[in-house]
Design a protein around this nucleic acid. Sequence first.
DNA 1: GCTCAAGATAATAGCGCTATTATGTAGCCG
DNA 2: CGGCTACATAATAGCGCTATTATCTTGAGC
Lengths: 346, 346
Amino acid sequence: MAAPKPIRTRRKMQRVTIMDVAARAELSPSTVSLYFRKPDAVSAAASEAIARAIDALDYVPNLMAGGLAAASSRVVSIIVPSVRNAFFAETVATLQDELGKHRLQVMLSHTEYREHDEESLVRTALSWTPAAVVLTGLSHSTATRRLLRDSKVPIVEIWELGSPTMDMAVGFHHDQVGQAAASHLVQRGRKRLLFLGARLHEDRRAARRAQGFVETARDAPDVTADIIQHPAPASAEVGAMLLGEALHRFPNVDGIACSNDHIALGVIFECQRRGISIPGRLSVVGFGDLSFSAAANPSLTTIRPPGDLIGKEAARLIIARIAHPDTEPERTVIDTRFNLLHRQSS
Amino acid sequence: MAAPKPIRTRRKMQRVTIMDVAARAELSPSTVSLYFRKPDAVSAAASEAIARAIDALDYVPNLMAGGLAAASSRVVSIIVPSVRNAFFAETVATLQDELGKHRLQVMLSHTEYREHDEESLVRTALSWTPAAVVLTGLSHSTATRRLLRDSKVPIVEIWELGSPTMDMAVGFHHDQVGQAAASHLVQRGRKRLLFLGARLHEDRRAARRAQGFVETARDAPDVTADIIQHPAPASAEVGAMLLGEALHRFPNVDGIACSNDHIALGVIFECQRRGISIPGRLSVVGFGDLSFSAAANPSLTTIRPPGDLIGKEAARLIIARIAHPDTEPERTVIDTRFNLLHRQSS
DNA sequence: GCTCAAGATAATAGCGCTATTATGTAGCCG
DNA sequence: CGGCTACATAATAGCGCTATTATCTTGAGC
């Protein structure tokens, strides 16, 4: 019962491999591999021959093979609620730019604010043995935490600070944002305050800003504060609607903080239409310092979250961690703070 | 000279592999692999045993190993100028959502409007043997084209139509946008037209809109048209500045088209400050229909590019192509068109 | 001239999975 | 009840690269 030698017709890819390059350069595959990984270890003559061969053959390395062999990859997986949101877009873009300088690739996923989706996204992310994982916010399921912990991959949580942190974190305290807005309005002599918020049930960070706002406001003498919200995503139209509701329910409102500048812009537009003077009768504070905020009429007082800085710092932490894979990882928390930009609307 | 048998101490990863799962489920690795790739081919009993094993071991598949073995991956590489730009953010987000439904991952890269960077980005993209590559626009270097052609990977060019197309394309004609804006203003009886543009030297598509605008405008009797531009990225502030320059150089201007809504918003704000009536003395048309445009005061007439539709259609094409890898690929060009939204500003 | 270290290059054995082929096992037919 | 098919499972050989070790080449030092 002699086992017949099976003839395998494995699809022999026509792909140009490191072996082809080596053959053409009259060197071994090892040397070509070294050329990519540690160029300094290869002689000038060999380097040139390899470069010529690569060029002639139009060689494209196979990073999956490399990653498999090295049990690592230069992929950073980023999970944000949505890149449609200008805040996260800014951070993702900055991360992308900074990581790109170190030949790290960005793999992007959205939760669309559905937190329970995060686990499967993390699972897929880990399937690529990424160099790092970036998550938005601090609330993650137990399963997600376990997955990430077991993987031993560097983790950066962005855009929110508080407890507990998994590994590294870069962001700021959203309740402090609300506090800053409230303090500002109180300082301007406002007494009847409102927080106008969009999608607070899904956007935990906005909800924390709202909470910080009312708590601080209510600590001030003779000041009252409430929250008015709308379930739709933030837009100027929602802002206009919310102002209508605010005036209806609290006719003597004189200070408004908004969950972001889209809402605030809608408030400004609606006030123009209704002939309500800003900041004469009403002070308005936004959040975001979006592209239009400084140019608005009146220009919008707002709180600027440093989306770019968050991206930069997160990238810096990742790169530093990758550079020293052996040293005991250090838990790092970076508070980027935020800026209140006082303009005409308050 | 007997060769000593070398003892390899290859780092034996502690990673849970398909073999561990197989052992626990008392099945072969092949069957476990089949369970992932073709679940229907595995018996119910086996499936259950495998599922239990996966759960117990917290198995995370290694997609790099899988991709290497299968000579393919479920990664779609997307290259856009910048995700900071709301247009591309919208498309990227939609692509991400649609592709995600089919378990396709998005790898994202930015050119930052530096077209000569595209080649190296494409090169890296191809290193992942992606399922498809999505590029913005139609102008690519010869080397980029060759790389992509040789790779035989499905390609979708988005956000611009014209010649020549590499494989599939989804977008619209930007010169037609300019034409539509010009026709609209001419119809409204405007005679002294201007196109206000930001970063036209880098943003080819905006430049084509500008060109289409002046060409169409100048065909109309008694109508004159010019372009005023600024090298900075589009923002309301730049819009305000451009309006200042426009009034200075062409005091009798009565119709303005903008390279995007940020510019247009700046124009509106600046007109408010200067007491210039819109649309009484000046008609304004934007591009983009950004979040604030409908709520502006006056609401902004603008041309809406279907960023979400572009993403949806691109995803559809990719998914269709992947589903039929054998059939001869069909060159597809989808013209999504665009909408002129007539509002108060014109 | 010989030794030895440093610098280059090469040989080898996987990384964890999939595709392909092979084998086993019922179920059905005549 | 032998043979044949359909279905389920298993065995095997890579995919293209990297990490590790081994070997070869210089050139310095004495």
